[in-house]
């Protein structure tokens, strides 16, 4: 399950998708719309848009990299597009492995690469009525 979705992300679906009886660890990372922007403005919501074909293709490449680096593991990834409110998940990555260290490492790798490489853009809408496009910085 590697996809862009227009409907709210259901974290349990990703969890169920990756978990198998040989796995002792499941890590699920969830990115959520935050109330304050990085420049401390009050956020009312976010809009995400994607170059859909390339975004899904790049997410699949990242998933393959995860599998080849952290095998054996299972991965599921969803990114929401459209208009989101504060508190809604924008992205979720679920990783299942035999033991926890590998699951944390794989999950970190997947979300970091997604934020660097996948052609998705976020526009912040502020309570003031203004809006602005953001750029990702690494490691935040």
């Amino acid at each position: 399950m590697i996809e862009l979705v227009e409907q709210p992300i259901d974290i349990r679906v990703l969890y169920e998708r990756v978990r198998k009886d040989e796995h002792g660890a499941v890590v699920v990372f969830v990115g959520v719309v935050r109330r304050r922007s990085d420049d401390d403005r009050s956020v009312s919501g976010l809009s995400y848009e994607a170059y859909q074909e390339l975004a899904v293709g790049e997410m699949k490449v990242i998933a393959q990299e995860v599998v080849s680096r952290f095998s054996p593991c299972e991965i599921a990834m969803q990114h929401r597009i459209g208009d989101l409110k504060v508190g809604e998940p924008s992205v979720a990555v679920a990783i299942a492995t035999a033991h926890r260290a590998q699951a944390f490492d794989a999950c970190r790798y997947a979300i970091d690469e997604l934020k660097k490489r996948v052609p998705i853009w976020k526009k912040e809408h502020y309570v003031s009525g203004e809006a602005g496009w953001r750029e990702n910085c690494s490691e935040r």
Binding site: A55, K115, R117, I120
Partner: peptide
């Protein structure tokens, strides 16, 4: 041709 400004997914 797609014009791709710096990304901000996640």
């Amino acid at each position: 041709i797609a014009l791709l400004p710096p990304v901000s997914g996640g």
